[in-house]
């Protein structure tokens, strides 16, 4: 990372200096990892990420630049928004892996649409189970059914995420025989299917709770 142009301190982020508390307008498009001053990596220390967010917002937030004139407030507001967006991406393992796939020149979310037939059959099964749960009369039985499906989906999701992060990491390190980017993308797309199912389940749960 470069040095601060004002105080020569090593910059924690291109957007702000922790030493002299100067803030800078970005001169080029910055990646989320650059903004957080972290090396590109599939695995991230969540606690460090959160602490960095708080540190950067303390330097950048427009609340602290009110007296510095409209132009500075504009930069502060823009930088804060950039940091917020970067944080939202980095904290989410699936979004982070997806970013790495595209960064390495892999297929985007929309360009890799093919999913394996057995997986699609599975998705249909979840949907059927959910329809049945919605119609069910017995509240306890419904709850048990929901919990079971949720547990199954969460386990599968966790496995997919672990795989994806490992594979993305080996791709980043250019290890020979690494899983190809298209496969990683398909795993990430599978995660999206699971997330959609999980939010449908959450809606059913909320409705149930509301009814009681």
């Amino acid at each position: 990372m470069a040095d601060c142009s004002h105080c020569n301190e090593v910059l924690a982020s291109p957007l702000a200096c922790g030493g002299c508390e100067s803030i800078f307008a970005a001169t080029s498009i910055l990646s989320p990892f650059e903004i957080f001053g972290m090396p590109i990596s599939a695995r991230i220390d969540r606690s460090l990420l959160r602490k960095t967010l708080l540190k950067l917002q303390r330097l950048l937030h427009p609340d602290f630049h009110g007296s510095a004139g409209e132009a500075m407030v504009g930069i502060a507001e823009h930088n804060t928004a950039e940091v917020n967006a970067a944080f939202e991406l980095l904290r989410d393992a699936a979004k982070r892996a997806s970013w790495i796939v595209e960064h390495l020149g892999g297929p985007s979310e929309s360009s890799e649409r093919q999913m394996p037939q057995p997986f699609l059959m599975e998705v249909m099964e979840w949907n059927e189970t959910m329809e049945e749960l919605k119609e069910a009369d017995d509240a306890d039985q419904t709850k048990a059914g929901i919990d079971e499906l949720k547990a199954e989906l969460n386990t599968q999701r966790a496995e997919l995420i672990e795989n994806t992060l490992d594979n993305a990491e080996t791709q980043l390190n250019q290890v020979a025989g690494a899983t190809d980017l298209a496969t990683i993308r398909r795993d990430l797309n599978a995660v999206r299917y699971i997330d959609r199912a999980l939010s449908a389940i959450a809606a059913i749960e909320l409705n149930l709770a509301q009814a009681h």
Binding site: Q57, H61, F64, G66, S67
Partner: peptide, 13 residues
Amino acid sequence: HVLAGGTRDILLM
């Protein structure tokens, strides 16, 4: 008080 420059100890996000 924060916006008036009175303190930097508190930040609202």
